Amino acid sequence: MVNTIIFDFGDVFLNKNGEAKEKALAKLGLHDWNDDLEKLEKKLETGKLDEEGFLKGIQPYTDNASLDQIRDAWNMGIADFPLYRLEFLQKLAANYRLFLLSNTDPIHMEKFEQDAGASFYSDFYQCFERIYFSHEIGYRKPAAEAFNYLINNHDIQPKRTLFVDDKKFNTDAAEALGFQVWNLQAGEEDVVDMFEKKIITQEEM
């Protein structure tokens, strides 16, 4: 019986638009997200690099774009957060221990909070027992350390915990640690359909 749910953030609650981000970066001259840029993003998402360092690291791959232009293009990947998902989460919080575990960065989180507004994001955060962003804890999924961080700090039993993420390599890693998992297919499935899809049965509430 599931008593705890760990959620990813992007493409589970917050819609993302990778295509818009790629187009915006391409307009600045950056057409190929290569291995060096991937490493740069990983450093940002694990707190080993700050915002300015990240933006300056991207700058040489652009046509002399400003840091503000790069930040704006990077944030084009952040789309909307439908209210009905927050309302679903608020109901869920009455019956389960909820946690958020997200690979993200301070640039995107600042953008989300600005767009959502203090009332909305406060209501969202309050649904969770704790929120863990990769840039704050220093670990990114699918690394086992990211999951163990929650297990060790909150007495979580993986076999009684559902992990929800849109990336299969993340749910595969969680499953290997004993978690129940739902690899949500963004664009085809919605987190609010959890009971209809029998990911968790209503009887478990």
Rank of each mutant, 00 (worst) to 15 (best):
T201A: 13
G178S: 11
N152Y: 01
R160E: 15
G187V: 05
F124H: 07
K91L: 05
N17E: 09
A65V: 01
D32R: 13
F195L: 10
E188Y: 00
K56N: 15
D172K: 08
C127T: 07
V12A: 04
G18D: 09
E52N: 12
A146F: 02
K197G: 08
I137G: 09
T62V: 04
L49S: 02
R140E: 09
K42N: 14
A144N: 10
I137W: 11
F169C: 04
I78R: 00
I137S: 11
F99E: 08
L98N: 02
D80W: 10
I70F: 14
E196G: 15
K111I: 05
N152R: 12
E87A: 11
M109C: 07
L14T: 01
L92F: 01
D193P: 00
E45M: 13
D11R: 10
D115L: 15
Y149F: 15
G178H: 05
H108W: 04
L89P: 01
L55N: 00
F112Y: 15
L25G: 01
R85D: 00
K23S: 12
A93Y: 00
A186T: 12
F195M: 03
D166C: 14
N148C: 05
W74F: 15
T62L: 03
E51K: 04
T171R: 12
K111N: 10
L25E: 01
F179A: 05
E188M: 05
I6H: 04
L40A: 03
Q202C: 05
H108K: 10
G47Q: 06
E196W: 04
Q126M: 09
N152K: 11
G187H: 01
L86S: 03
A94P: 00
E188R: 09
R160K: 15
R130V: 06
G53A: 12
L150T: 05
G178C: 12
F54I: 05
G57L: 07
G47T: 12
V2H: 06
Y96S: 04
H31D: 14
V2S: 06
K21N: 09
M76A: 13
F133E: 11
N64W: 03
D35G: 03
L30S: 00
D63G: 01
I6P: 00
D63E: 12
E113N: 11
F133S: 06
K21G: 08
D35W: 03
D36C: 02
N95W: 02
R160Y: 15
T4N: 09
L184D: 04
P60K: 04
F133P: 00
E203F: 01
Q59W: 02
A176S: 15
D50G: 11
